[in-house]
Amino acid sequence: MGWAFVGPFMGVFLLVFVAPVLYAFYLSLFQNQMVGGDKFVGGANYLQALADPQFWDSVIRVVVFLVVQVPIMLFLALFAALALDSGRLRASSFFRISVFLPYAVPAVVATLMWGFIYGPRFGLFGSINDFFGLNLAEPLSSSWILASIGNINTWEFTGYNMLIFYSALKVIPAELYEAANLDGAGTFRVIRSIKLPSIRGAIGIASIFSVIGSFQLFNEPNILKALAPNSISSYFTPNMYAFNLSFAGQQFNYAAAISIIMGVLTVIVAYVVQLSGSRKDA
């Protein structure tokens, strides 16, 4: 009887999740050549990927991105959520919606918008440099591009993470605050001893979402590539590499192998993040 209840879910799950993954795995065992057609190559694509400097280049880039951007974004989100929760803000609902609003802007539109702002000649950056006679950073140059993308992502997702934290803060029982008050605890003591420990679970969840998001980085660099073709290579992130291999290079099989490796890597990293989070809980 039990299976009848989970049956519909299982059917959809198999069809849209398990089957594509299995098919990608199956594809990754072959090689297709313009001259020579298809042949079974076993694990050769995996060995090639593990020794492919372009693949590792892209993996290292998203790891750097993750290590820098995720903490900054989560800290900002946490700060905003604590500020909201403090109840000392004027027009707090306006503050809440305006921080959250960028999340409602589609990533494609957000990136195009930031692309205009970053423009070296006629964009906002160009105009500011011109006006003050400065030569500030060129956001689309290859040394700044990762930071520029990080900025777009932070702008987009801080509000989303703020809402996760804020809703976790809202369910903390008021008695704890009253008790703390009686004990003479100040605001920062309350944050450190009550608020932060209570929302540790939410912080863990937000971290995992952000880690997965970083590993899947694609929209922002792929759109900015049209504006900064030399700063963003075809293997800028693992997803872009797989995409270009498969849709520009017809190397579906190799792209499938890279996707599988990336999937496994993401699961491992997310699991490690979760483990370290839950250990603190205990």
Partner: peptide, 13 residues
């Protein structure tokens, strides 16, 4: 000019 072809900035230039 460091402006990429077919971009908005290009047409402005």
């Amino acid at each position: 000019s460091p402006v990429t072809s077919w971009s908005d900035e290009w047409y402005k230039g």
